[in-house]
Amino acid sequence: MSRRLGPRITRRRVRTLVHRLRREEDGQTLLLGVGLVCVVLALLFVAASATAIYLDLKTLTSLADSAAAAGADGVDGSPYYGGNGTDAAPGALTDAAVSESAAADVSAQPAAARLEGVTIVSARAADAQTAVVTLQARSRPPFLPWGIIPAEGFTITATGSARMTTTQ
């Protein structure tokens, strides 16, 4: 007789335990689903914000390259044409010429209007033939919590260089 009652009691206990576990887990999948959706949305927002910063950096790099090319192109032509008799070699870049040409190029670029606070950190002639321009701007990604992160955004910096060559 004990053999018969043993399996019945065990089965009944198993059924009771399974029934209790099912009742205790009601609503848990909804909570897990909501949590998963929140995590996925947070990851999407972080990825979109990182992409926005990356695109701002690429735009600033393009501006710096363009300004450096304009600075290398802004060679003073007077030594070529026998103008004022300066000590500079014909076709040599100067810091003032690079700075002036770079500032004019940055202000003429429509991409500079898309970025916030574009400034020229330095525009110089590294040697007589190379212009180096460093720009700085602010990047404000759209999906970051600006109450936690500083509201002024992130400072990004890009440097571009261009080399002038002359043919004889």
Rank of each mutant, 00 (worst) to 15 (best):
R140P: 03
R13M: 12
M1F: 07
P79Y: 07
A125T: 02
Q136H: 05
V46Y: 00
Q109F: 01
A112P: 01
P110I: 11
C38T: 15
G74D: 10
R23V: 11
V106N: 10
S139C: 05
G83I: 03
D76R: 10
E152T: 13
S139F: 02
S99K: 15
E116C: 02
R124C: 00
P145F: 10
A42Y: 06
V40I: 14
A42M: 13
A103N: 13
G35D: 05
L5I: 15
E152K: 12
Y54I: 04
A69K: 01
L43W: 06
T155H: 07
G35R: 13
R124I: 01
T86C: 10
V98P: 00
P90E: 13
L30R: 11
I156V: 07
D95Q: 10
E116H: 15
E100K: 12
A131E: 01
T130Q: 06
G77F: 09
A131P: 00
A162E: 07
A113V: 06
T86Q: 05
D105Q: 15
Y54Q: 10
D56W: 02
T165A: 11
F45E: 02
V132G: 01
R13T: 11
T157I: 07
R114S: 13
G35Y: 08
A42L: 14
Y81S: 14
A158C: 10
T51E: 02
R124L: 05
A70M: 07
R124A: 07
